[in-house]
Write a protein that binds this DNA or RNA. Sequence first.
RNA 1: GCCGAAGUGGCGGAAUGGCAGACGCAGAGGACUCAAAAUCCUCCGGGGUAACACCCGUGUGGGUUCGAAUCCCACCUUCGGCACCA
Length: 874
Amino acid sequence: MFDERFYSHAEIEPKWQARWEEERARPAPGPGRVPGEGREKYYVLEMFSYPSGKLHMGHVRNYTIGDTMARHLRMRGKEVLYPVGFDALGLPAENAAIQAARARGEAVNPAEFTEACIADMSAGLKRMGYSYDWDRLTATCRPEYYRWNQWIFLRMLERGLAYRKSAAVNWCPDCNTVLANEQVHDGKCWRHTETGVELRQLAQWFFRITDYAEELLAELPRLTGWPEHVRIMQENWIGRSEGTLVNFPIEGSESAMPIFTTRPDTLYGVTFMSLAPEHPLARDLVEGTEYEKPVVDFINRVATQDRFMRTAEDQEKEGAFTGRYAINPLSRERAPIYVANFVLMEYGTGAIMAVPAHDQRDFEFARKHGVPIKAVIRPDEETAPISDEQRAKVVEWIETGCPADGEGMKGAFIEPGVQVNSGPFDGLPSTEGIVRIAEHVEKNGWGARTVEYKLRDWLVSRQRYWGTPIPVIYCEDCGAAPVPERDLPVVLPKDVDFSKDCNPLLTNPQWLAAPCPKCGRPGRRETDTMDTFVDSSWYFLRYLDPHNESAPFDKSLADAWMPVDQYIGGVEHACMHLLYARFFTKVLRDLGLVQIDEPFQRLFTQEMVCKEHTFKDGATRVVKMSKSLGNTVEPTETVDKYGADALRLFILFAAPADKQLDWSDEGPEGCSRFLNRLWRFAQSNAETLRQGIADLDGQTFDPGDNPADRDLDRKTHDTIRRVTADLGERFHFNTAIAAIMELFNALNTYALRSQDPVSRSCAASATRVLALLLAPMAPHICEEIWERLAPATGSVFGQPWPTHEPKRLILDEITVVVQINGKVRARLTVPASASEEEIQAAALENANVQAHIAGKAVRKTVYVQKKLLNIVAV
RNA sequence: GCCGAAGUGGCGGAAUGGCAGACGCAGAGGACUCAAAAUCCUCCGGGGUAACACCCGUGUGGGUUCGAAUCCCACCUUCGGCACCA
C-alpha cells in the first residue's frame, strides 16, 4: 500500500479507471437503449477526432469539457448519452502506407495502421478518466460504418441530390485530389497551408447542398444555443442576395445575355457589359471577327493565371472588347460587351451589367478602358451616410457630367440616394427605385426577381484510397449505374499498390472489374472515394445504434435521442463539418429517417491550446501548439507527472473554455498542489470527518447558532450555488474551480483545529459538498475521498448533485459600502436587518465620511439594498 | 475593405451598472530543517505615509449616470472569418 499522507495519482487513478470500466460508472443498458423512464435524456457529443495515435492537448481540452458536462449532468439526474468514436478515414493513414511502400517497399495496410492508432488513442482517453459509453465506439473506416455512407449516397442519387458533372474544380497537388470549396482557405488547401490549389476541369460527384441553402440560412436565427459568431460565419458563407435577373438582347443576335444584379436602381446607368472569361458566349461572340484573336488571347492568358491571384480584390481590372453590343431593355442604349477578369463564372450568370458610376470595380475598369461613366443616383442628405464634404464632391462630379478623370473622385458612389437620369423613376429614393424598377422589368418581361447564393454544391469525390468507395459502376451502354443495395458494402480492397503515382484503387484490376448492375455486361467501378466530411455528417446518428446491420440506425432511437443537446468542438469547423452535418440532417429528414430539422441544439466552441514559441527571427509569440513548430506538450507526460485529475483541472482552470488557453508548465503543478492539500486535509481528518458524516445521517447540516458553523455553512451553500450555475448555465469551469478552491481554503484554514470552533458535522458537510462539486472535473480523487468518507453510500457519481438552500445564504451582518460622490469612503458593518435610515445615520457618524462632506451640502443619497449608500454632496 | 471577437497587475484570469484585481501562477520575506525539497505563515497594481489618510489606475478620447472595466459614440491595437459574389 502507498503512504496515506501523500496523494498518489499513479495508484489511485488506475484503480478507479479499472473500476469504472467494470461498472461503467453508472448503469449502462445496451447500445440500443432509449432514455430511461422519468429521466430527461441528454446527449453530450464531442467532435470526434482523427486517430493519429496520440492524444494532444487540443483533444484533452475538448474532451475534458465534455466529460465534465456529462458527469455533472448525470449527477443532476439526466439520462446522459456520451459516446465516443473516430473519424478514421483520411489522408494521414494513406500517406503512411505510401511512404512505407515507396521507402521500404513494405506493404502497410491503412486499416491495420488505423486500428492500431484507435487502440492507442482509446487507451489515452481511458487514462484521462473520460466516462464514455465505450460499447458504442464507432470508427468510420470499418465497412459496418461506411456501408451506410454508401446506402445514404444511393438514396441521394435516387432523389437527384447526388449527381455527377464536369466542372472546374479545386485540385490540391499535395493531396493529389480535388477539394470542396469549404476546404479551400485563402486559395490554399485546408490541410496544406503552403499549397495553392489549382483549377482542373474534371467530372466529379456533387451533393446538392444548394437545394437546402434557403433552409440552412433560415434556421440559423433559431439556433439560439449556438455562438453568435458561428451563425454569422455560416450566414456569410451561404451568402444570400436578393436581386433581379435581366436579359440584355445582343445586337445582331437572336440570343440574349442574362445578368444578375442586386442594384436594379442603377439599370439606367449601364455603360458596358462584361462576361467571365470562361463564359461560352465570350468565344461565340467573337468567332470569325477581327476581335477573335485579342479576345481569345486574353481568355487564354487569364486561364493560365493563378486563380486565387486572379480573383483577389486588389487585382488590376483587365479585359478585352468583343466588338459586340448589348441593348439595355430599359433605356434602349447600346452597351459594349467586354470579357473581364474580375467576373466570376460560378456566381450569378457569369455575366454582369456594368455601372461604373455606382460600382467600384466597374469604375476602375471604365477608367482604364475609357468607357463612359453615367451617374443615375445622386447623394441626398437623408439616405447617404457620408459627410457633407464628400456629398458636395460627388454632387459636383455628377453635375459636371462625370468626367472620367473624376477630378479627385477615387471611386464610385455606391451609397443609396435619389434617382436621376432614370427616365420615369427620376426623383425616387433609390431604395424605392430598387423595388419599382425590378417590378418594371418583370412587367415588361425583361427579367424576374430572384435570389442568388454564394454557397456551391458540395464536391464529394476524392481521388484517394482511404475513403468510402462511391457505390457506382460505369458501363459503356448504361453509363453510371448505382450498385444495388444488396451488394453493399463496396469494400475497399486490401490488395493495392501504394507505390504508384495514382489513386491506389486503380492498381487492383480484379476489384475494378464489376458487371454492370443494369445489363450485366463488364463494367468498371468508380474509383473516386467520398470526402471524409461525409462520414462526419451523420456519425452522431450511428452512435445511437452502432451495431445495427439492417439500417444506418433505428428511427425510434433517433426520435428518442436526437437532437444532440450539447455539441462541443473547435470553431474551425463552422463552415465545413457544422454546415454539412446540418445539410445531412435535413436530407435524412426528407428521406424519412429522422424527424428533427437540426442536429445540434446547443453548440459550444472551445478555443485552441497555445504555447510560447520563439521563431527563427528571434520573435517570441504565443501560438497554437503544433507538431510542425515543436511547441507541443505531451498530455501523457503531464499525466505521468501530476496525474489526469491535475491536468483536467488545469485545462479547465487556466482560461474560460471558449477562449484561447495559454499553456504554462507550472499550471498543472499548481493544480496538483491543490489536490494534494485537499487529500492531506481529508486524510489527516479522516476519522473526524467520517464521524461527522455519520452524525449527519444523510440529513442536510443545520448550523444552529454557532457563528463559525453558520459562516462555513453559508460558504458551502454559496459555493453550491456558484458551481451549479457555472457548470450548468455559463460553462465557466475556471470560476467554478476558483469557487471550490475558496471553499476549501475556508475549510482548511478554520476547521478542525484545536482552538477552532467549527463543529465536525459542519466540516464534514462542507467536505462532502466539496467532493461532489469537484467530482465532474477531478473524478478520480473525489471517488477515493468519497469512498473513505462515506464508504456505505457507493460511488460519488451515484449521489445526487447538492442543492443550495437560499435561506442559508442569509447573513447576520452585512458590509455596506459608503460612497461620497461615487468614491468609496467607508465600509460599515451593520446588522442585516438595518434600514436605510439606520445605515445613513451610521454613515454620517463615520469620521471619514464627515471629513469628506464637511462644508458641503448633501444633495441626495442613493441606497442599494444591503450593498451600498452613495451620498451626493456638493 | 466587410463581418466578428478581444484589450484589466510581472503572467493566466475574476468582477456584465454598485468595494477593480476573486482564484491560481510567478516573485519577496519568514517558520520548520544540519541543509535542501515538500509544507506552513506574511506581503505582493503605481504614487504616497511611520501607519493611516489621500491621489492615480481596466487600450485612447469623448458621452450617459448619483455611480462605468461593464452602457453609448469615435478612434487605436491584436486575433479570427470572409474577401472582385455584381
